[in-house]
Simulated assay, not measured.
Amino acid sequence: MMESFKSNKRAFFVKAMVIACVMLIVGTGLWLQSIHKIVVIAHDGEQMEVSTFKNTVGDILEKENIVLHSADKIKPYLTEKIVDGTEIIISRAFEVKIVDAGLEQMVMTTDINVEGLLNSLDIVIGENDIVTPVLNMPLVEGQKITIMRISEKYEMEKTQIPYQTITKHNDNLEIGELRKVRAGNEGVKEVKVRIVFENGIEVKREVVEETILVEAVDEVFEKGTKNFIVTSRGEVQRFKEVIIMVATAYTAGYESTGKNPEDHGFGITKSGTQVRPGVVAVDPRVIPLGTQLYIESLDSTPSYGKSSAEDIGGSIKGNRIDLFFENVEDALRFGRRKVRVYVLDN
């Protein structure tokens, strides 16, 4: 009876031990199943599925020997707990160049486009600034982003207004005569100038507003258009030019020409004609030989009248004219004076 009891007790103990072991195995399996996770890691353009018992993002990266650099970004954070099905996304930073108003800097970024990069760096873009490439352009490694800073300012300036010269025709003035009627005066205006700068350098200047402070006064001339004269004999003569000249007098004698009556060529003009009242000597560069003239006195003395340019003289250059007189007394009496020479339109 005692042996039978001991045998039953031993069998019960063995059975209990078996049950305990089974429960331990089952419990361990359930526990292991509860801490086991399948996660997906996305990085460097690839996705990998990882089976793990690790608890945090940092732990699983360490186990998989995935190294993060300082500018890389990861989601979720390294300290966050992972669960079955967690997706870990690693964004690798790459280098780009930013040229802001001429100043260069190299930066590491994980942003996907230009606008995101500028926002992450707290770079403010003004209304008129120009960004190249455009803000929505995707970023790639080694890309260059240029920011041109556009600014403007306004200045007030005073400037001179030049006067205009106006010429009016006057039929009462002889052709070629010019008379000033009114002097010109410059005006003054105040202008508002818009100045545009690119990266601090002036590139444009334009007047956007102006106010006249003093009006300019135009200079006025009257130009003669009268092309006829009435001679001392009452004849109407048309002319094409008027020249103010210095007139002297000469004769055919020795005192003027160095020749005596018996000398060859005495009394013969450069044109080969015989000297006579009305013949004058001129500079052919000013008045061609053969030109018909009317010579008017500018003082109270009688005008020399109609004449013909047929001779020349050694001292007759430029606006000088020599008038022929038949005797020395008349020539000396005429002397030297200014005359108005009309070039007749024959």
Rank of each mutant, 00 (worst) to 15 (best):
D111R: 07
I89Q: 00
M137A: 15
N172C: 09
G85E: 08
S4L: 15
Q164I: 08
F228M: 07
M17K: 01
K144Y: 01
V196S: 11
I243R: 06
E241H: 10
P288N: 09
I89K: 09
Y254L: 08
R336C: 07
N136I: 13
T109R: 02
R333Q: 10
I195M: 04
T211Y: 13
M106I: 14
I316D: 03
T301W: 11
Y342F: 15
D44C: 07
E326L: 13
R92T: 15
Y77V: 13
R92G: 07
A309F: 03
V217A: 01
S91K: 14
V275F: 07
I35L: 03
K168E: 15
F221S: 07
S232R: 07
A247T: 07
G265E: 01
V220G: 03
K153C: 06
M148R: 10
T211Q: 14
V40A: 08
K15S: 15
E310R: 07
E177P: 03
I130F: 13
V114F: 05
K317S: 06
A16N: 03
G224R: 04
L213V: 14
S297K: 02
D299F: 05
D122E: 12
E190C: 01
I295E: 07
V14W: 10
G318Q: 08
K15W: 12
G305Y: 04
L121P: 02
Q274R: 14
T52A: 11
T56M: 10
D263R: 10
F324K: 03
E62G: 11
N319P: 05
G126K: 11
M137C: 13
V140K: 11
H43R: 07
V341E: 05
C21R: 00
E80G: 14
V57G: 00
P76M: 03
Y342S: 05
K63W: 04
L323E: 04
I201S: 12
D283F: 12
F94G: 03
G85V: 01
I66Q: 01
K338V: 05
T86G: 02
Y154Q: 12
K144I: 08
I98A: 00
M1R: 12
L117E: 08
D72F: 04
I316S: 06
I123N: 07
Y250F: 14
V124H: 00
R205F: 14
R333G: 02
I161L: 08
G278S: 13
A331P: 06
F12K: 15
I312E: 06
